[in-house]
Amino acid sequence: MTGFLGEYEATLDAKGRFLLPAGLKKQLAEGELQFVINRGFEKCLTLYPMKSWEPIYAEISKLNDFDPKVREFRRYFMNGATEIEPDSAGRLLLPPNLKEHASLEKDIVLVSAVNKIEIWDAGHYKKFFESFSSEAFSTLAQSVMTRANEGGV
Rank of each mutant, 00 (worst) to 15 (best):
T2L: 14
T2R: 14
T2W: 12
G3H: 10
G6E: 06
G6S: 06
T11R: 14
T11H: 08
D13T: 14
A14D: 15
K15I: 11
R17A: 09
R17V: 08
R17L: 10
L19Y: 04
P21K: 05
P21G: 03
A22G: 02
A22D: 07
A22R: 07
G23L: 05
L24A: 07
K25Y: 01
K26Q: 06
Q27P: 04
Q27K: 09
Q27R: 10
E30T: 13
E32F: 14
F35E: 03
F35S: 06
V36K: 00
V36N: 00
I37F: 01
I37Q: 04
N38G: 12
N38Q: 11
G40W: 00
F41M: 02
E42R: 09
C44G: 08
L47D: 07
P49R: 10
M50L: 13
M50V: 09
K51W: 10
K51I: 12
S52H: 13
E54R: 14
E54K: 14
P55A: 13
P55C: 14
I56L: 15
Y57E: 15
Y57W: 15
E59M: 04
K62I: 07
L63M: 13
F66P: 03
K69T: 04
R71W: 05
E72R: 12
E72K: 12
F73N: 10
R74G: 00
R74F: 08
R75W: 01
Y76P: 00
F77H: 10
M78F: 10
M78Q: 10
N79V: 03
N79S: 12
A81K: 04
I84V: 15
E85N: 13
D87M: 15
S88I: 15
S88L: 14
G90H: 10
L94Q: 05
P96A: 09
N97A: 11
N97E: 13
E100P: 04
A102T: 00
A102C: 02
E105G: 01
V109N: 00
V111N: 04
A113F: 10
A113Y: 12
A113T: 08
V114N: 13
N115V: 02
N115Y: 03
I117C: 04
I119E: 06
I119H: 02
W120L: 00
D121G: 05
D121K: 10
D121I: 08
D121L: 11
A122M: 12
A122W: 11
G123M: 08
K127D: 14
F128E: 01
F128S: 01
F132R: 13
S134V: 09
S134I: 12
Q142K: 07
Q142D: 10
S143A: 08
M145I: 03
T146F: 03
T146Y: 02
N149M: 15
N149Q: 15
V153L: 15
